[in-house]
């Protein structure tokens, strides 16, 4: 008996490998596995190796120290700050928009969602230039504000942080709206009626019932737009100034101008780690949300 027990898992694995289904499964998965190994795993490992090598090929943490000090650190912090601002802005706007859409009749809701999503079929570059035309000193928005003699107009809406956040928020909005819309549609409106029957006013119902029920969705939407903003390149490049340099631009600059591949690799790894941490958090929040949904269904 005691001899056969350790042999059991091995026997099982062998049996599983021998089964036709497993062999067939492995065979069909093979192209994807190779594709990922060659084009995803190998480059990442390569980048990791690069980030740990000094000029002579020896091991060093110099590039990481470099990434986390001086100007590089401030770029990293700018990236985090702009991403957080974008997450917040797209969350607030997305919440309002998703709420409005979730209260519409299904047909109008579908049309509204098309309006939210459709601009994103246009190339990012074109959209960004569209914003530049709208937001410039002599752009449509500033001209209009001057025409009505708004005090302080024209405002500087481009080549600063406002410009970048406007641009990135616009990119993130469909994600937050779609996510929040789904969560909001899942809220049982009768729960709100139940609260009203007990004497709760609109504000109390919103704060004590509605908000807690959509909270998991808010957390995931915020985290998602934060993560997606971290690596954003085009918009900050075109709509921001030198003070809004984000980490993706810095990496590009190091590679194409300074030929500092090792430094760029270290920055890439740091960006990747932050993204992974965000994704992990998103997964945790998501599973919390799933159990909340289960609760509201029961």
């Amino acid at each position: 008996m005691s001899v056969s027990t350790p042999a059991l898992p091995a026997a099982r694995i062998r049996a599983a490998l021998a089964s036709r289904r497993t062999r067939y499964g492995l065979l069909t998965a093979l192209p994807v596995v190779i594709y990922l190994l060659v084009l995803f795993v190998y480059p990442i490992l390569g980048t990791l190796a690069l980030s740990l090598k000094d000029e002579q090929g020896g091991f060093t943490l110099h590039w990481y120290a470099d990434t986390l000090t001086g100007i590089n650190l401030s770029v990293l912090l700018t990236t985090l700050r702009i991403s957080a601002e974008t997450a917040l802005a797209s969350l607030v706007l997305g919440f309002l928009l998703a709420y409005a859409v979730s209260r519409m009749r299904p047909l109008f809701a579908a049309l509204a969602m098309v309006l939210v999503v459709a601009p994103h079929f246009v190339s990012a570059l074109v959209r960004t230039y569209g914003w530049i035309i709208l937001l410039g000193d002599y752009g449509v928005l500033n001209e209009a504000m001057q025409a009505v003699h708004l005090p302080g107009a024209p405002y500087q809406l481009l080549y600063n942080e406002i410009g970048v956040v406007i641009g990135t928020t616009y990119v993130m909005l469909p994600y937050t709206v779609l996510l929040l819309y789904g969560v909001m549609r899942g809220v049982d409106r009768r729960l709100l009626a139940a609260a009203a029957s007990m004497g709760a006013g609109r504000l109390v119902i919103f704060r004590r019932i509605y908000l807690p029920l959509v909270a998991p969705g808010l957390a995931s939407a915020g985290l998602l737009s934060f993560i997606l903003s971290l690596g954003y390149y085009v918009t900050p490049r075109l709509m921001g100034g030198p003070n809004q340099t984000m980490i993706a631009s810095l990496i590009e600059q190091q590679v194409t101008k300074d030929y500092r591949w090792n430094g760029a690799a270290a920055q890439g790894v740091v960006l990747l780690l932050i993204t992974f941490a965000g994704l992990l958090l998103l997964k945790v929040v998501g599973s919390l949300g799933a159990s909340a949904k289960q609760r509201s269904n029961s």
Partner: peptide, 20 residues
């Protein structure tokens, strides 16, 4: 009056307890 101002009690078929 709005429902919340009537001070009545209501029991629904679907219970409608607040899940959170």
């Amino acid at each position: 009056l709005d429902p919340q101002k009537r001070n009545l009690g209501f029991v629904f078929q679907q219970y409608l307890l607040f899940p959170h």
